[in-house]
Design a protein around this nucleic acid. Sequence first.
DNA 1: GGAGGGCGGAGATACGTTTCTCCATGAGCG
DNA 2: CGCTCATGGAGAAACGTATCTCCGCCCTCC
Lengths: 385, 385
Amino acid sequence: MTAAANQNGRRATASRRLERAGIRDVAAAAGVSITTVSDALNGKGRLPDETRSRVREVAERLGYRPSAAARTLRTGRSGLIGLTVTTYGEEPFTFTEFAYFAEMARAATSAALGRGYALVVLPASSRHDVWSNIALDGTVVIDPPDQDPLVTELYRSGVPVVSDGKPGNCPVTAWVDNDHEAAVLNILEHLSDAGARRIGLLTGTSTDTYTRLSTEAYLAWCDRVGQEPVYEAYPAHDPAAGAVAADRLLARPDRPDAVYGLFDPNGTDLLAAARRYGLRVPDDLLLVCCSESDVYANTEPPITTLSLKPRRIGTTVVNLLIDAIEGVDAGTGTATGRLFPPRYRTAGTGPPPGTLMPTELIVRASSQRRTPRTTVSPPRAPGEV
Amino acid sequence: MTAAANQNGRRATASRRLERAGIRDVAAAAGVSITTVSDALNGKGRLPDETRSRVREVAERLGYRPSAAARTLRTGRSGLIGLTVTTYGEEPFTFTEFAYFAEMARAATSAALGRGYALVVLPASSRHDVWSNIALDGTVVIDPPDQDPLVTELYRSGVPVVSDGKPGNCPVTAWVDNDHEAAVLNILEHLSDAGARRIGLLTGTSTDTYTRLSTEAYLAWCDRVGQEPVYEAYPAHDPAAGAVAADRLLARPDRPDAVYGLFDPNGTDLLAAARRYGLRVPDDLLLVCCSESDVYANTEPPITTLSLKPRRIGTTVVNLLIDAIEGVDAGTGTATGRLFPPRYRTAGTGPPPGTLMPTELIVRASSQRRTPRTTVSPPRAPGEV
DNA sequence: GGAGGGCGGAGATACGTTTCTCCATGAGCG
DNA sequence: CGCTCATGGAGAAACGTATCTCCGCCCTCC
């Protein structure tokens, strides 16, 4: 009785001036208890439809919006997922991964939204106080470096973490990555088939998984087919360095007659360098680069690109993460059941489950030596209005 | 006494198995009260440095992380800012604004982070339950359509809203936009100076501020100088339609000898269309388009672009929003003082304060009829290694 | 006629902070 | 010696929700 008077009377005694309606106000206006309002609005409990709709109506009339903070505190779920992007220097996410990241983030946002979650963009360089000030249900990490302290702390504190890019030593809940080895081998074969005798590589100096696996696959292939490796590495986050490295690669005495560039801007840089040295593409030099940008469909000549299919990656990462969030026992962080369908698992118990996604090679003129059509590819629907 | 036993004893009686340490645990371990822990960690209250550091040490040892949800509930601040992006169809943010949006979001993220806030990406098409499930301190809205119900509701419920793009009928706290009129006039003058006699426009069919203001400025200029308007409009969110529209514009009997394209892909589309019709750029056709992409530095010929300086926009929008958040009286949403420095205000009381930001015209070969250097622009640091 | 069971709903507690209020102690001072 | 003040810190009330527990009622069935 006393407590009841307290609950309903508190607001009345305290000068409540124009504050937003709370659940108590709705309860009072509808003539029911707080419990009933909560149940009616959340579709829980056992209530006749009449009461349910009446409460909803009153809530609507009062413009009631449940407090997200209170709900999060109570339920332990915020509906928020962190999206961690690597940073170089001051700016979030690097230039070289620009289109890739944008596409991936877009797909991730859509996927999360479809399941009732929203994404919080959190550069890895964020001040720690920002991180700890946000209630996250889980985190997506893009290409974590080895031994990322951030990931380790998150994982330890029970927050599910799914990484885009096979993690090095970080413990993660799950990971998704392209099959970079297969992709590189496929490209090398493709170039060989087009007549390449010496294939060069434009690669990066950083130690992320993508760079490492791709370079290793290239070196292994060289070793297998007996070609001397011809490559230049440069800091991939520096856009100017890419042009210099491309130039350097084509200036070598053992100049390659085909080049695969690992990063987005390499295509245009290599094309420019080739022009500079009077090399015709594809006649004197075959070109492939990894890019999500469609500008390479319109360069002169159009350049063959490898797409990592970032949309699929983004969608998969988010779905894996939400599966983990919703399937995990909130208390201890131990799994209540199988987190992933069997196809997702790599090993029984040790390493975290990983998913390998295929890539797509978009073949254009730059990697086909004798192209049947020497004319410019016809514009899109030229006569069509 | 009883209450004290309750506060400290609750966890002991309840089976507390491996739960994360709370502020109570820290207080108990440090032999002080909850209040003292809170004060010590937040730098409030009057405490000797010795106590402060001791509490901090204990908290560190226990791995204490304050609950963001509880803090948000108590303080009414989440440190979260919504970033609303327009959507076309299923996907968040449209293709045509891709580079612009990416740059803008990047800058906004940095700016927010620097002030202790994080950004939540929220497509305008989000289900309402997602919106209301997130505690937002404020929202950035990109180019809201007229009478956006989302913005209206947010504003009504007291959440500060700052829009990128002058809002139509939505009530917002403040807005930021480029001076589109000045930009268009500048371009038209620039083309005239280069010898253009009839300037065409490639524009969009949507009703957003950017499209509307730019088109109006073009029409007004035509009217003033006595040129018959020559323009084609197409749905800007459809990338294929742009190529068709570019073709149509150059196929007209009253073919323009200079074109300004409002959207990013227009440059390549117009270039391709010009080739198709045997028009040389810039000799037969002067070209300018609005774009943030640097691919236009390397096209053949390089194309003059108008940059909207999205980084500056993003930074400004976020700073304006955070100013509003931190300067607003939490209770009623009324301002406690001047929200913005005088230079931000347009009118005394009626319309929300708006800021106009300058644009930048990056002049390249495509808009200069007699260019002094007919050679290809030198590559970046060709001799440098 | 009493016991059990389903229905509809109320009470109260806990989520983990922040912060307002207030108390004890000791020093300074008239 | 008593009063005031500053210092250091404790108590307890919120913040607004979800949910666990339990209670009354009416109906039915043995």
